[in-house]
Design a protein around this nucleic acid. Structure first.
Length: 575
RNA sequence: CGGAAUGUAGCCCAGUGGCCAGGGCACCUGCUUUGGGAGCAGGAGAUCGGAGGUUCGAGUCCUCCCAUUCCGACCA
């Protein structure tokens, strides 16, 4: 590609909206343009990189017996009603009607669509296993789109679905996809970790996230210093050190006045007692029933864990009015003692150690002190519902300590079981003629996000430093003086030789000053720059600069071309 | 969903109710220059987000709408 002919534009300044490096650099290099909140156009440079990621994904999946299909982006409500997610998916689902008033949505994910496609095809156990995937636009009406392609509303996703006879076969499919994902991100040239994850709304029991390591990542991960275990902090188990209450230490319960003191911090200061002696009491609404959640005052409730413990499909803190109505006191003065009998109490393990707790009295402006489980209130279940933290003991090997780092979730694999196949009658006949629901798994990769993560992980103050496998172009030829025929002829030769050797090469044939071309080349992040200047061209030489290392060498033209071909081919393989 | 801010040329930003709305980057023409986003001169480019209102006069004040961004969405 000659830049004089290219739809190409770079910028020195960035819009104030762009907060993180990858967004700023994608804007400055003219890779993307925002059309609406969370909705972007992909310009040529971006699309070339996206296509490379897609090619790597297709290659690794096809090698493992997966087949590509393409489902509609617009999905009928009926399918989503069948699985129960038309309501459960909430406001993230972009819904609309056609001229007849029928309900549709933009697909945010395609479990229903694939399950429907497969059930029309599937009859016998002999047909399985299947693993089908697509690369397609998804739409999720995010609460807060941000960070450019990192959290857009419309985005490109590869989603795959496996269909197996039984749990054992499904586990095999899961492992195969886990391996495929590891191969894919390795080939992309990214530093990543596969971490144990919470399954969330999509359902299912086994799940791993593939996280690209980057300090700007939205996810917090914990990794063991001695074994290979890594886990999302949302799921990380907290090992308990049991310290059962000593009943002989129990004091008499009293009610104290705490006018206007609502938060743990306020009451703690007011009474002069440490926060860890409080039982934080939170009222949650889980699928429209109310639950009181207890946890030591210095800890926070992990809602992901809580939702799993309650087996609820929707969970949120109850609105203050609901709390008032059900309990008769405002949030801030809620506690486990003298609770209406229809409200169950779930407590974190932290509430099972020690004695003489302080909590709200279920009367405004009053707290109870010296309360104790069993004697003063009944907990229906103790569970691990708090956050792990750096420094905790590893819950797997129980030896190492957990250390914290940040990641960008670029891939996710789930074992689904029969959640969708049962709801949607995706059945087959086994060898005995019994009708059985198919075992499913689903597997996603955010393609735009992978590209953004690659930039996030590989840039400096001058611009992007593309890993060769994802670089939109592999090399750029920079003739420094366009009015010098020796220079332009040499540049032309290098450009043609590289292109004919299959190196994806750009020729900067614009009549610009050298500094301008260098800045642009560094910004775009071509892995290799080949400079032809008046001096070197007169000697029949070219200068090579590698973007990643900054290393420079000068070689005769033909040697330079061969050297680059070698170098690029090598980097394409090993990543 | 709640709160706040912003909206002026492709991008970044100025602009007390008062003449023809400014600057930087980018763009066009000419000269000059050619190893790290050059310089000089000239030039084009704006229904000031939209609608309504107040006023002799509105980019500026008021109302409504639209859009974008930020913070929050209840840890009691």
């Amino acid at each position: 590609m000659r830049l004089t002919r290219s739809f190409y534009r770079t910028f020195k300044e960035v819009p104030k909206d762009a907060q993180i490096s990858s967004h700023q650099l994608m804007f400055r290099t003219g890779m993307i343009q925002q059309l609406a909140s969370g909705i972007y156009s992909y310009l040529p440079l971006a699309l070339r990189s996206l296509r490379k990621i897609e090619t790597i994904i297709r290659d690794e999946l096809n090698q493992r017996g997966c087949e590509e299909v393409l489902m509609p982006a617009v999905l009928p409500a009926a399918l989503w009603q069948e699985s129960g997610r038309w309501n459960a998916y909430g406001d993230l689902l972009l819904r609309f009607q056609d001229r007849k008033g029928s309900d549709y949505c933009m697909g945010p994910t395609h479990e229903e669509a694939f399950t429907d496609m497969v059930r029309r095809h599937l009859s016998s156990w002999k047909q399985l296993p299947w693993n089908l995937y697509q690369i397609q636009d998804k739409f999720r009406d995010e609460f807060r789109p941000r960070f450019g392609l990192m959290r857009g509303r419309e985005f490109i996703m590869k989603d795959a679905y496996s269909f197996d006879l039984d749990e054992q076969a499904a586990a095999k499919s899961y492992r195969l996809m886990y391996e495929a994902y590891s191969a894919i991100f390795t080939r992309c040239g990214l530093k990543f970790r596969a971490v144990d994850a919470a399954a969330g709304e999509i359902g299912g029991s086994m799940s791993h996230e593939f996280q690209v390591l980057a300090s700007s990542g939205e996810d917090v991960l914990l990794s063991c210093t001695s074994c290979s275990y890594a886990v999302n902090i949302e799921k990380a188990a907290v090992l308990q050190k049991p310290n059962p209450p000593d009943k002989t230490q129990f004091k008499d319960m009293e009610i104290v006045e705490t006018p206007g003191q609502k938060t743990i911090e306020e009451v703690s200061q007011f009474l002069g007692v440490q926060p860890e002696k409080f039982l934080k009491s939170l009222v949650y609404e889980a699928d429209s029933r109310l639950v009181l959640v207890l946890i030591a005052g210095n800890l926070d409730v992990n809602e992901v864990k809580l939702q799993a413990v309650l087996n609820a499909s929707a969970l949120r803190l109850a609105a203050p009015e609901k709390v008032k109505e059900a309990i008769g006191a405002e949030p801030g003065f809620i506690g486990p003692v003298n609770l209406p009998p229809n409200i169950n109490i779930i407590a974190d393990f932290s509430a099972s150690s020690g004695e003489n707790w302080i909590s709200g009295a279920n009367q405004n402006d009053k707290h109870t002190v010296n309360i104790n489980p069993e004697r003063d209130f009944q907990v229906s279940e103790f569970a691990d519902i708090t956050f792990a933290a750096a420094g905790d003991t590893c819950p797997e090997c129980k030896e190492g300590q957990m250390e914290e780092f940040r990641g960008i979730e670029v891939g996710h694999v789930f074992y689904l079981g029969t959640k969708y196949s049962q709801a949607m009658n995706c059945l087959y006949l086994d060898e005995e003629g019994n009708s059985k629901p198919v075992e499913m798994g689903c597997y996603g990769i955010g393609i735009g996000r992978t590209m953004a993560a690659a930039i996030e992980q590989n840039h400096d103050e001058n611009g992007i430093i593309w890993p060769v496998p994802l670089a939109p172009w592999e090399a750029i030829v920079l003739p420094l003086q366009m009015n010098n025929e020796t220079v332009t002829a040499a540049a032309e030769k290098v450009y043609i030789d590289l292109t004919q050797a299959g190196i994806e090469t750009v020729l900067d044939d614009r009549n610009e000053r050298p500094g301008f071309k260098f800045k642009d080349a560094d910004l775009i992040g071509y892995p290799v720059q080949i400079t032809l200047g008046a001096r070197s061209a007169a000697e029949g030489k070219a200068e090579i600069k590698f973007r990643a290392s900054g290393e420079k060498t000068e070689l005769p033209l033909d040697d330079a071309v061969n050297y680059i071909i070698q170098w690029i081919e090598d980097k394409r393989q090993t990543a």
